[in-house]
């Protein structure tokens, strides 16, 4: 196991848990169980509020419909998740989440910035980069968070605004992402566990890049991620990995 490896809950307790990902309950439970951090999905609302939400549309996961970027917080704040049965866990404002995490400086936050604008123009990408940079400074999580995105331009703009913000390029092709990360001085690559092996992790490390692995939804993939020596394990099976690593 990589001695610097950090265990993060995917969206909190992971997609298979009864608590929906990206909710207060799921994220706080993950941190209270002993995870070293959490991966969360963030989107910017129409009135520039960071909302913690995964999908491109609020339907069918919640009682509302429409995209986050097309709605103001006042409209979004009435949204709650339709699962599990009988519960109404709300869609949350990122500021409220970070206000609720006690000793947030002790945790790592993987921030997956979702941009569902079909044809985002350069101005919109500039806005996202600027808002993100301001927000991580305001939350005082510059040095214990990393930004993940598939949008190369967005990552480049964030990096140019604040070189201290760690940026990870989302990868479907390891070699291509490695080259982009090296050219743009990104800190790492975010990649599905099924696209990884021990040699690729070693290759990334030799190039000075970190690896954040996701798609870890079974006990075996927890073990694989540990054996590969990745830097961040964004797991859906938190309880299992905490047990086997004695955290």
């Amino acid at each position: 196991m990589n001695p610097d490896c950090k265990i993060l809950g995917h969206g909190g307790m992971g997609i298979a848990h009864t608590l929906p990902i990206n909710t207060f309950e799921s994220i706080l439970k993950c941190l209270n169980m002993g995870a070293e951090g959490v991966e969360i999905d963030i989107q910017l609302s129409k009135d520039s509020v960071w909302i913690i939400f995964h999908d491109s549309d609020m339907s069918p996961a919640t009682n509302l419909s429409g995209s986050i970027f097309n709605n103001n917080w006042q409209q979004i704040k009435g949204a709650y998740y339709m699962n599990p049965l009988y519960a109404q866990y709300p869609v949350i404002h990122a500021d409220e989440l970070f206000h609720s995490i006690v000793n947030k400086e002790n945790y790592i936050f993987s921030l997956d910035l979702k941009n569902y604008q079909m044809n985002p123009d350069s101005n919109y990408t500039d806005l996202l980069a600027r808002k993100y940079t301001e927000w991580v400074i305001k939350q005082d999580i510059v040095f214990n968070s990393y930004l993940t995105s598939s949008d190369l331009n967005l990552l480049m703009k964030v990096k140019s605004l604040n070189p201290d913000i760690e940026t990870f390029i989302y990868s479907s092709d390891f070699q291509k992402s490695k080259q982009e990360a090296l050219v743009q001085n990104f800190e790492g690559i975010s990649i599905h566990i099924n696209s990884l092996n021990q040699d690729l992790v070693k290759e990334a490390h030799q190039s000075g890049l970190k690896i954040a692995a996701f798609g870890i939804n079974s006990g075996q993939s927890n073990i694989d991620a540990i054996e590969y020596g990745v830097d961040y394990i964004e797991t859906d099976q938190l309880q299992h990995i905490l047990q086997i690593t004695n955290n």
Partner: peptide, 22 residues
Amino acid sequence: FIMSLIVQYNPSVRSYRKLNSH
């Protein structure tokens, strides 16, 4: 007839139970 008391989090009160009928 169903009554649920679900434990939820709220930033101002932290833990509370939300009562609903179904």
